[in-house]
Design a protein around this nucleic acid. Sequence first.
DNA 1: TACAACATGTAAGCGGTTACATGATTCG
DNA 2: CGAATCATGTAACCGCTTACATGTTGTA
Lengths: 185, 185
Amino acid sequence: MAVEYALLGLLSSEPRHGYDLAREFGQDTPLGEVVHLEHSMLYAHLKRLEGAGHIVATVEPQDARPPRRVFSLTAEGRAALDAWLASPVEHTRDLRLEFLLKLYTARTQSAALAAALIAAQEAVCARFVNSLTAQRDAESDPFRLLVLDMRLAQNRALLEWLQQASAAARDTDAPPTSEHNGAAA
Amino acid sequence: MAVEYALLGLLSSEPRHGYDLAREFGQDTPLGEVVHLEHSMLYAHLKRLEGAGHIVATVEPQDARPPRRVFSLTAEGRAALDAWLASPVEHTRDLRLEFLLKLYTARTQSAALAAALIAAQEAVCARFVNSLTAQRDAESDPFRLLVLDMRLAQNRALLEWLQQASAAARDTDAPPTSEHNGAAA
DNA sequence: TACAACATGTAAGCGGTTACATGATTCG
DNA sequence: CGAATCATGTAACCGCTTACATGTTGTA
């Protein structure tokens, strides 16, 4: 699912064919760092997106090569992409894949969109940390305490990372106004 | 896979039948907190374990109820369980499910086994933190920096949790010798 | 009377991985 | 001469989830 939205994101600036899209998920690429997508799966996703009306294909014949199927984002696809980029993920486990894909895609659209996404995710994460803290305080079983401590540790770390990413996004969004600014990478 | 080893762990002290094992994965149970196992899947796992020779079933007829199939751990099953409990998980993503199952099971066997498991996992985690740190230092792409920072945050948090769990396990293993001991929960 | 507990399973579908299939061109 | 690149897909399998199937006993 998440990968399909990332594909919509890649098609949002210009139409591209399958093999070209595959290059975005190769070794030593930002997206390839997050998710490994085999050719077979990529074409399957494109087929699904086409069936859902999120993309449309036009065939470009080539001499001595199989014709390319060039995909473009439809209005429905654009709407689906925007909705996806506007909402944070619900579960902690989805941070490492789906949220990173959202973040990558949002950054290609605009710094403001990325900042809004991070802020929304921070809120979800903070709420969950509070919930876990309450559960922890009410727990007495030693093993369940271990489990809750683990989840707390993970979610607190993730929240701090989001806050740091938030700050970094602000720096990128609004470049330094002072001439004595040592921040920003 | 991981759940099947946890089932072997549940059978290590005494033979039990399927429906009885299912209770261990219900609401408000330590194992149910970690993994939700439907009846259908539980019986499927038992079938696989039986086929693999890790457990054997004896049928106990009951009047006016379906006969129980009571499962016992075989020598092969015991060996597989011991091997599983002796090895840490390789990937960070496996901590929240497989490692917690290992930890739960190890704790039912002996405090020493649990302590050894935690120590082994600490080593894996620490190595990965070092590897990530090195990658981070060599990275310049802003998005990949975000990804690496996220992984670092998660793995550092997990490592701290393991160290804390290690300390807690030691306390449980060897109760306080000093009368002025303020630690332990 | 209806629902939960007891006790066992089968079947269908879904998302994902792995392998297979085709066939020309270019580079080492 | 073999390997990588270009360019598209199909087929099989695998683990997991959800729904379905059966039938009794005790409880609200």
